[in-house]
């Protein structure tokens, strides 16, 4: 699944991550007393595969809890997969030497939603941005100051402020500090996890523009995770839609919006508020996002799907190619 070409930056093959929800004390006692209560397993990411072309922006969307952050963190090397494989520039991460793994870890950087939580409040900006490039030999102690100034200028921060602490900056500026910290080690690939979600509209626009400029200037590849479909639509070349730990559709952006294939994609796009869409008649949404602890059998979407058949309740639909560069995981495509 997902074409692999020479231009592929990163591929993910049948990747999974389970979290075990440990029993609390009451649970353990109940178990000792013979109750059949057990540890619960969340299949946060459940056998997903995708390919990210070099230089592209891939948007990853889906409702909260569907596994976006977990997938992003595995790709960024922060979280160890339970199963499956990630291949970076042709080399499987499981087969990398120590050196190769360290290099990949630098080349793939992650940018988080909450810039404040991810910045050490007791460090000055010059050290937050300059620490990693110094450690990894991108600069020297003597040149660190000018190195940091350059990076700050690149993200639109005034180098005058490099001796300040994070709390002395606004939310938008703190996000720029987070971006500068990531860029300081010359990454090739950025995983942005809800990186603009906490920002005001006018500041969001500034940071989205910054991401697009950096892509041009530095030839970056992005995995752009967001719950905001209009933002993802604006900056992504292709979009990956997840539902309850699985990918349900992958498509180039324009095709996805023009002709969504998967019934879940269709439902999701329908709900997205749009400026041009005035005086809407809202409709009640059928069903509920099921618990990831106990996902529905077969196709996870079947209890909410208007097209569900008996087969949908028993058989997991595979993600397969429905047109060049388009994939969808729905049994309806078998009949076509």
């Amino acid at each position: 699944m997902s074409e692999k070409t020479n231009d592929t930056m990163l591929t993910v093959d049948n990747l999974s991550k389970n979290f075990v929800k440990k029993l609390d004390l009451a649970g353990k006692i109940a178990q000792k007393l013979g109750s059949n209560i057990r540890e619960e397993v969340v299949h946060a990411v459940d056998g997903v595969s995708l390919a990210i072309p070099k230089g592209s922006v891939v948007g990853l969307v889906g409702e909260s809890g569907c596994g976006k952050s977990t997938l992003g963190r595995m790709i960024a090397g922060i979280l160890r997969p339970t199963g499956g494989d990630i291949t970076y520039k042709g080399v499987s991460i499981t087969k990398m030497s120590g050196d190769e793994a360290a290099r990949a870890a630098l080349q793939i950087q992650m940018i988080f939603q909450d810039p404040f939580a991810s910045l050490n409040p007791r460090m000055r900006v010059i050290d937050i941005i300059g620490e990693a490039p110094l450690t990894h030999g991108f600069t020297t102690a003597a040149e660190k100051d000018s190195y940091v100034c350059d990076v700050m200028k690149r993200v639109g921060l005034d180098p005058e402020y490099r001796r300040r602490y994070p709390h002395q900056f606004s939310g938008g500026q703190r996000q720029r500090i987070g971006i500068a910290r990531a860029l300081a080690v010359n990454p090739e690939f950025l995983v942005c996890d809800e990186a603009i979600a906490a920002l005001d509209v006018s500041i969001q626009a500034q940071v989205i523009n910054l991401f697009m400029d950096l892509r041009e200037d530095l030839d970056l590849t992005y995995l752009f995770i967001s719950h905001d479909l209009s933002v993802v639509k604006h900056i992504s070349d292709r979009i990956v839609i997840m539902y309850l730990g699985r990918i349900v559709e992958i498509s180039p952006t324009d095709e996805l919006y023009a002709d969504p294939n998967h019934p879940y994609t269709q439902a999701l796009l329908n709900e997205v508020p749009q400026l041009e869409h005035r005086g809407r008649d809202y409709k009640p949404v059928e069903g509920e996002i099921p618990s990831p602890l106990d996902p529905p059998s077969g196709c996870h979407f079947h209890p909410r799907c208007p097209h569900a058949t008996d087969r949908c309740a028993t058989e997991r639909p595979e993600l397969r190619e429905i047109a060049p560069t388009r994939w969808s995981a729905c049994h309806l495509n078998d009949e076509a």
Partner: peptide
């Protein structure tokens, strides 16, 4: 400025109109 900076108001992949500075 606010309306102009909403992604949906701009064509895909173009720079968004941005209001300079902050409140």
């Amino acid at each position: 400025g606010l309306l102009g900076s909403v992604p949906g108001a701009n064509s895909r992949g173009t720079r968004l109109y941005q209001i300079p500075g902050m409140a």
